[in-house]
Amino acid sequence: MRIIDLRSDTVTMPTEEMREAMFRAEVGDDVYGDDPTVKRLEEYAAQLVGKEAALFVPSGTFGNQLALFVHCKRGDEVLLGDDSHIVQHEVGAASVIAGVQLRTLTSRQGELDPKEIEAKIRKAEDIHYPDTGLICLENAHSNGRVISLENMEQIHEIAKKYHIPIHLDGARLFNAATYLKAEAKEITRYVDSVMFCLSKGLCAPVGSILAGSRTFIEKAKKGRKLLGGGLRQSGFLAAAGLVALEKMIHRLQEDHENALLLGQELSKIPGIQLSLEDIHLNMVFFDMSAAGYDTDRLVEEFLKKGIKINPAEDGIMRLVTNYWVSREDVLYVVDTMRELLMGEHTE
């Protein structure tokens, strides 16, 4: 049975072009700086986001935590949203690796209030206070929304005023750029460093990029080695990453359109509540508690029909479209949902 996997866009398999590129990749020992394919990937990635240099890292979490590790000294305070990925889904790594304190701010569906950020910056020289070492933003946000460039610019101005760097968790940076109809560098101009994933929706099997100034990346290389991320013939993986950046970012609009279609059709089913205005990317979040159907059972019944989904998180379901999910697949998923829920009401 063919499986339609809507759990995440991390489930994407490499394309045939990627597999061929990996097979033929020219490689060397990257810890020695000898891997030409990794070098090409890092140079191209830096150009895409308008930064001086970039570094290939194993994962998005690795890239985010490495950024905190490099930007901050132990005991620093990091300002970020209370619903950010770094807070919610990175295993408390900031306290273990960088030794920093996370000071969370109220998130307005992913956007942070510039006035609140300025108010929370530690301005007074006081032996009781930690230093504000970093501000972290997230765009696109893991709630499926894109943060406006105006909001990022306002925060950037405040950060410059107090000489505090900004790191961007841009795991789905190119989805955000697609939604904004802008180049990625128009987003990253407002931050000092950025992490973005090659494996979320872009089909690369492994890897993310951390980009910033040349000095920052030189420090990050040493930090990557310290954290066990010094890879050897990683050009085999970087080759897929190059294809991802050269070919796959230009088709993300298709995933967005399929997600909107999925949301539109699901919203017609009694008992499902969702906001179409919140579908900025390839993610559809919805509440089906009013349908009276157990979500754990839904996961089981969907799997019987060849559809993989995650169970609800805090009562909210999330479906994610990706390269391997077609418009026809979306309609099949909707039909399956309708049959299960409507059948439940007619029994």
Rank of each mutant, 00 (worst) to 15 (best):
R172A: 04
H167I: 11
A140H: 02
S142K: 02
A140T: 11
R172D: 07
L173I: 13
A184V: 04
H141C: 09
L137F: 15
K185G: 01
A171G: 09
K160R: 13
S142N: 08
D169L: 03
L137W: 06
N175I: 03
Y179W: 03
K161Q: 12
N143K: 11
Q154G: 06
P165M: 11
H167W: 12
E150C: 08
T178H: 04
K181R: 03
I158S: 14
A176Y: 02
S142C: 15
R172T: 10
I166C: 09
C136D: 00
V146Q: 01
L173N: 08
A182D: 03
I164C: 11
Y162Q: 13
R172G: 02
H156A: 09
L168R: 11
F174T: 01
H167M: 08
K160V: 08
E153N: 07
A184N: 05
N143A: 08
L168T: 10
S142Y: 00
I155Y: 04
R172V: 12
G144M: 02
K161E: 13
E138L: 07
K181W: 00
E157N: 10
E157V: 09
L180E: 01
F174Q: 00
K161Y: 09
S148E: 07
M152V: 04
G144W: 05
S142T: 10
E183V: 01
L173E: 04
V146M: 04
N151Q: 13
Q154H: 15
I147R: 03
L173G: 09
I164Y: 08
E138F: 07
N139E: 13
N139H: 05
L168P: 02
H141M: 14
P165A: 06
